[in-house]
């Protein structure tokens, strides 16, 4: 099978301006992936499916991944005017100091597609698409018109992650009930507090347990 670089070149030849990037996978599996621009994604997908040599007719797996906003603390060199007493005289002196700066890297939702070829029996080719952010610009083009197998899997991602697939024929919640408001697979989802605890070895669970017990105690106190 072609390497990722060759596939990228083929895509760029077929879909001008596709702007595909390669995302390296540093692990031993070395399944590198192609990051698509949402505007051209459907064209690229059609090309991958219909190209005689690639013939990626089989979309196996669609995964949603949530990458929340990351707070990055880094040391930044800044030049400052400081007041100092030099030789008994107060002066303004320029000085370079290192200051920790907090920078928020915006998060995004990502959808990963694993493609195989049923006729040529090769694969996987991994495609990725990213939304602009996690709150309002969460639209991505749907791959269901190209591969039917995306139908339920994209609905699942809509349900659990909140990615809105434009062009999907029937985008509804699939696993949770209609009327449910949250997207539970997101990393910042807060579960309903209905959990009775036994001591476990997990710190996170123990913290939850303490909070739960406190709430129950509070309710009992209020009831009396």
């Amino acid at each position: 099978m072609k390497t990722v670089e060759e596939i990228k070149a083929a895509i760029e030849a077929a879909v001008p301006g596709a702007g595909v990037e390669i995302v390296q996978n540093p692990g031993p599996a070395a399944q590198h992936s192609l990051l698509l621009q949402p505007e051209h994604a459907v064209d690229v997908a059609k090309f991958l499916r219909d190209d005689a040599e690639l013939a990626l007719t089989f979309l196996s797996n669609v995964t949603g991944v949530d990458w929340p906003d990351k707070e990055i603390t880094e040391k930044v060199k800044v030049t400052k005017m400081v007041t100092k007493t030099v030789d008994g005289v107060e002066q303004q002196v320029e000085e370079t100091v290192e200051e920790p700066r907090k920078r928020v890297e915006p998060g995004y939702l990502e959808v990963v597609y694993h493609l195989y070829s049923m006729t040529k029996k090769h694969g996987p080719v991994v495609l990725r698409m990213r939304t602009k952010n996690r709150t309002d610009a969460v639209e991505l083009p749907s791959m269901t018109p190209v591969w039917r197998s995306a139908e339920f899997q994209e609905r699942e991602i809509f349900d659990l992650f909140g990615v809105v697939f434009t062009g999907h024929p029937d985008l509804r919640r699939i696993l949770m009930w209609e009327g449910f408001k949250d997207h539970p697979m997101r990393r910042d989802y807060v579960e309903p507090d209905d959990y009775d605890y036994e001591p476990t070895a997990h710190d996170a669970v123990l913290a939850k347990a303490t909070a739960h017990q406190a709430r129950i105690a509070e309710q009992k106190g209020a009831g009396q």
Partner: peptide, 23 residues
């Protein structure tokens, strides 16, 4: 595991069963 990802699949009795892991 070191950072990275992998998709592994087998022929389960019902069809392709795959696991996709991101580390």
């Amino acid at each position: 595991p070191k950072p990275g990802e992998a998709y592994g699949r087998i022929e389960a009795p019902k069809g392709e069963l795959g696991f996709y892991l991101i580390s």
